[in-house]
Design a protein around this nucleic acid. Structure first.
Lengths: 222, 222
DNA sequence: TGTACATCAGTGAACGCGCGTTCACTGATGTAC
DNA sequence: TGTACATCAGTGAACGCGCGTTCACTGATGTAC
């Protein structure tokens, strides 16, 4: 008997499963409602209405909207990290490495549209707590990209700080590209091609400079 | 008599002057209140309360908050253009052109703090009408910078499109830098030095690539 | 397996509040002669 | 300059509305034996 109850507690019961579904529905409803508005102008009642539960049920899942916002930051950065992992794993054609990288970005912007939109929208704009959380995650994200870059021979003698500088530049360009793709009007899908071409050129330009770089604050011994 | 009335109408009467002052006070109050919140979460009543007029008096100046937002876009981009003009007019030391450019940016971020914050915050985040207006102004701003760049010998054989691509990259890095400066905590002012150094390096890196660039879509005849 | 009790996701009524907007108004400023 | 009328920035009361949050509740699911 004791065993059975322990197992029931360990594996998810019907109640737990259902709660988890509502939780996910709240996150998705919030992202979905951000089509035409920012997170800060989203109301608790709107979100619960979209999910189909009563406003007070919200408090079974989050203390307030701020906490929901933080959950969205976590979920959205999971998508970004997955993108980075794709870029690492997929075979990179030496010839078209820039094109291929930008295409991975474009693909994730489409499949994880709501997550990208959330980060782009709330990165500078929204409520303080969410903005801080995004800023923190973004710093980690830049570091992860820097770690990837440093493996390439061109960066082998670079200082950590300078690699981060390049990574930050690329991440900024990447987000501007993501925003541009998100903004392509439905009636002009061909606009995306131009955006991708521009992003590819920007990436190519930045990495073209790398072999010629000489830091103004060279590492000790240089 | 007729003359006098015409002159009175032409030169600003006391009433006109006072109305203009209230108008400016509304714009400034809105920018000021955006310290801890975005424009979309700003209420008409908050703004009039800050100015010290009754809510209904707002309608003597703007049809609604959206119109006030558009006025803020115009005013803010005037500040940005003034910055570009500074960069054109001031003598550029050949040796430290990157450092100097970034310092002009930093100076304007401080003197026009509220305008920069407004653009950075509302560029991706806020209400649609304001976002569209910023996007439009930003495209013009990129073109203006491209026109400035194209005067430099390194860009002489570049296509217009490619110069715009570089200008857009620089403007994005510039805004990321502006945001970072705006975000420097009051108790750590020395953080700004690092931000400026990074921005300078990014600018140097991008322009280092320029002489080595070969467009993948070369102009006819190349 | 069956029963008695505990848990807890979701309900529904109620609250006080700040909001945008309407309307008729006031009184200082401007205009006409 | 003086007077009579027009303009219009700002006033103040009032409205209906959606909001976040409280509270006591219900009833399906879970637990103990």
């Amino acid at each position: 008997v004791n065993n059975r109850s322990r197992n029931a507690a360990r594996s998810a019961g019907a109640r737990q499963v259902h709660k988890q579904q509502t939780y996910q529905a709240l996150l998705h409803a919030a992202l979905h409602l951000m089509e035409d508005q920012s997170f800060s102008s989203l109301s608790l009642r709107e979100v619960t209405r979209e999910v189909g539960i009563v406003p007070t049920a919200f408090y079974r899942h989050f203390r307030d909207m701020e906490q929901l916002g933080l959950a969205l930051v976590d979920e959205s950065f999971d998508s970004l990290r997955e993108m980075l992992r794709s870029a690492r794993i997929e075979p990179m054609p030496d010839k078209h490495v820039y094109r291929h990288s930008v295409e991975i970005l474009a693909r994730y912007v489409h499949t994880r549209r709501l997550h990208f939109r959330f980060i782009v929208r709330e990165r500078y704009g929204g409520i303080s707590v969410v903005r801080q959380a995004i800023r923190r995650e973004l710093r980690l994200f830049v570091s992860e990209l820097a770690t990837d870059l440093i493996r390439f021979p061109d960066f082998s003698r670079w200082s950590t700080e300078d690699v981060r500088m390049v990574a930050a530049l690329i991440v900024n360009a990447m987000f501007a590209t993501a925003e541009a793709i998100l903004d392509v009007p439905a009636e002009r899908p061909e606009a995306e091609t131009e955006i991708i071409q521009t992003a590819e050129k920007q990436l190519r330009l930045v990495l073209l400079a790398v072999p010629h770089w000489r830091s103004s604050t060279p590492p000790i011994g240089a």
